[in-house]
Amino acid sequence: MKRGFFLKPDTAIDLLSFMRVNISDFILDMELSGLDMKSREEIYSLFSTFVSHNGNAPHETLEVIQCPPGRKKETCSELEGLIRDSIKIPLAKFPFSTDPDKEINYTLRKIKAFIGHKEFNAFLEGAKDPELITFYIFKKGCLVRRLDSARSALFLKPGCRRRSKIAGIYGAAYFSVSLGLPTVDGIMLHGVGINRKGAGYLFLGTSGAGKTTMARLCGLNQVVTDDGIIVKRNASGFSIAPTPFNQLTPMDNNDMARAVRGHRLVMGLFLKKDAEVYLERISPLEACSLILKNHIHYFRYFPSAIARKAFPLVTDLCREVPFFRLHFRKDAG
């Protein structure tokens, strides 16, 4: 074991085989028994601030399965049909692709590499409704999420190296938490959260808009989260809360209170690089449209039941919190 864990060996093995992560009252139970100890330690280090030993909040189980070399050669047309129908659903709801048939065939071809593995087929056994199944392809694996049983499984390709395993598990957790948060009145946005004297400020922008620049300008000690920020409704309004999904600012393991408490959200700002610095007030309708279109992580993969929870959450957010477009220069001036 690495120094700093301060756990008895038998306790450490149990903890790192089954890890309960509590992120803003959504619990993700990660089953890692199929991984080597070194990989489990690295996963623990990524999520340690959010590891919890109890909790009765809504939860989902994420099992990590390393597929063995070789697979059965027989095909399963019924299973392939279910997968194809499931892939079509997000493309039909959000037709961003210029060639949806090409994307469907590409995704199906990637998933076919796992059909025939005993564990993969067993995980999908009994599944009938494609609306309740979500597939997400990683470079070295495939995540399958079943809404009907609150279970997910990340299937890793045979011979997958440790770095690819860690990246896949991190991405699978990111995906699962994003899709699970609406069940606890929360959403994960592609943005930066800033804590300034106890008040929360939300900075949103597409890739390259300047979120990382803004985090640096504000000072990293004020950054709550710089990539996957949670916006959550509570009795007093809306708050922002951190996640383990960061680029610049890994959570301080000694600051658990910050992870639990969050910060009251007082303003939202959409970033726009410009020659001048000024604020432009935007309407709740425009703010809602921008968030739904560009800023909810993995929104196109939300099943209808989850999307129906997320949509009123976003509309209420934009009514209750003022939103602006922040035109800014990259220099600190």
Rank of each mutant, 00 (worst) to 15 (best):
326 L>T: 03
317 L>D: 05
252 D>R: 06
310 A>M: 11
147 L>P: 04
247 Q>A: 13
26 F>Y: 15
123 F>H: 02
141 G>Q: 01
230 I>C: 07
231 V>S: 01
6 F>L: 12
295 H>N: 14
37 M>P: 02
24 S>Q: 11
306 I>V: 13
292 L>N: 04
301 Y>M: 06
326 L>F: 14
123 F>P: 00
297 H>D: 02
128 K>E: 15
184 V>A: 10
76 C>W: 09
284 P>Y: 07
154 L>D: 01
269 L>E: 10
315 T>G: 07
291 I>P: 01
69 P>M: 14
96 F>G: 07
195 N>H: 03
282 I>W: 04
283 S>W: 11
223 V>Y: 00
147 L>D: 12
252 D>N: 10
266 V>Y: 02
276 E>N: 08
61 T>H: 08
94 F>G: 01
73 K>Y: 13
58 P>I: 12
209 A>E: 07
160 C>M: 11
181 L>S: 03
14 D>V: 11
198 G>K: 06
234 N>P: 04
312 P>V: 07
272 K>M: 11
104 I>K: 07
135 F>G: 05
230 I>L: 10
35 L>R: 03
245 F>C: 03
202 L>C: 02
11 T>H: 15
236 S>L: 15
171 G>E: 11
8 K>I: 14
254 N>Q: 13
42 E>G: 03
323 F>T: 01
145 R>L: 10
321 V>M: 04
8 K>E: 15
132 L>R: 09
23 I>D: 04
296 I>A: 02
109 R>M: 15
203 F>Q: 00
12 A>M: 14
329 R>M: 11
284 P>T: 08
235 A>D: 13
226 D>P: 00
326 L>A: 12
320 E>C: 14
68 P>H: 14
52 S>L: 05
39 S>G: 06
213 T>M: 00
216 R>F: 11
38 K>M: 12
209 A>D: 08
124 L>T: 08
70 G>Q: 10
30 M>I: 15
39 S>Q: 10
251 M>A: 15
323 F>C: 04
148 D>T: 09
64 V>G: 06
311 F>C: 11
146 R>N: 06
132 L>D: 14
126 G>I: 10
174 Y>T: 08
226 D>S: 01
231 V>R: 01
244 P>L: 10
53 H>G: 13
146 R>D: 05
251 M>Y: 12
8 K>L: 15
186 G>Q: 05
193 G>S: 09
179 L>W: 03
60 E>A: 12
216 R>E: 08
321 V>Y: 02
144 V>H: 00
65 I>P: 00
207 S>A: 12
96 F>L: 13
179 L>R: 02
70 G>K: 07
41 E>S: 14
294 N>E: 15
276 E>Q: 14
93 K>S: 13
303 P>K: 02
224 V>Q: 05
73 K>V: 15
153 A>Q: 07
108 L>D: 04
154 L>H: 03
27 I>W: 06
11 T>S: 15
204 L>C: 12
199 A>G: 08
121 N>C: 13
235 A>C: 11
24 S>W: 02
271 L>M: 05
303 P>F: 06
117 H>I: 09
76 C>S: 14
213 T>N: 00
201 Y>Q: 04
84 R>F: 13
72 K>T: 13
140 K>C: 07
219 G>F: 06
21 V>W: 02
172 A>T: 03
58 P>S: 14
241 A>P: 00
